[in-house]
Amino acid sequence: MSGASTPAPAPSSLPDRLPREPRWKALLKSERFVLGAIGVVGFLILWEALARSGSINVQFFASPTMIAAAGAREVQDPGFWSDFFISLTEFLSGFLVAIVLGIPLGLAAGWFPKLNYALDPWLNFFNALPRVALLPILVIAFGLGIWSKIAVVFLGAFFAIVIPTVQGVRTVDRKYLDVATSFRASRRLLFTSVVGLATVPFIVTGLRLGMARALIGVVTGELYAATEGLGVIIRRSAETRQGDRMLFGVLIFTLSGIIGVELVRAVERRFQKWRPEGFRR
């Protein structure tokens, strides 16, 4: 197969699109990607080597391959999945209740200044307080089961959602309100067509912050006092020196943190345009 045997290609018109580099080639050229990959792989290799040579104690810092092996073992164990779903239930129920109660309260507090003044000291207090400090009371009130964790997840996320929502309502662009009022929009219409929509980006930010807080709530609640859940896997594995299993549990939390934050961030980007000038990020 040589160039001489094939007929010379007809002089074709210009391609309508410039040939694009394949994605992986573009990635390889990006310094950021290459260095990032080197950082990840290099550190993993270093970790593995140190663990194999016995410089670090694998009972505590299990090597990456050991963690992977532990993970492969765990996912075949129905016990792990039941713990996983317990943690997921706690997270989702607490977070959902926080959304359902937090958004309306935030909108109301932003809309009615007097309500805002009355609530403000309490919101500030609970926001400055590490919510996990309430765990002993929650355990006394709701027991060791999932209810006390749902409560602490709820408390964690609730204030993180309410506070940006209040801020969102109170920073609605003046000119939109003026336009609406000059067209004699009722207060109700003002709320549904201007304020409600302008607040959406702030609510989404609240959701992102609340998500992180909720995850902290799940972990701390389960480490503190629980009988089931991923936190219990971490605690028990630490107590029995199963470093690989413990770090696998931590890894699950890392992954859920990343997935959760990315999900909300995608929503956040979608509503970025709605954000008033000066609050855009």
Binding site: R32, G36, G39, V40, F43, F60, F61, V132, A212, L215, I216, V218, V219, T220, L223, G231, I234, R235, S237, A238, E239, G243, M246, L247, G249, V250, F253, T254, G257, I258, V261
Partner: peptide, 19 residues
């Protein structure tokens, strides 16, 4: 170090207390 930083930032570091 960015990937590691992002990963640790997404982890609730409380989970590392037993370790």
């Amino acid at each position: 170090v960015e990937p590691w930083l992002d990963a640790i930032n997404a982890t609730p570091t409380i989970a590392l207390v037993p370790l």
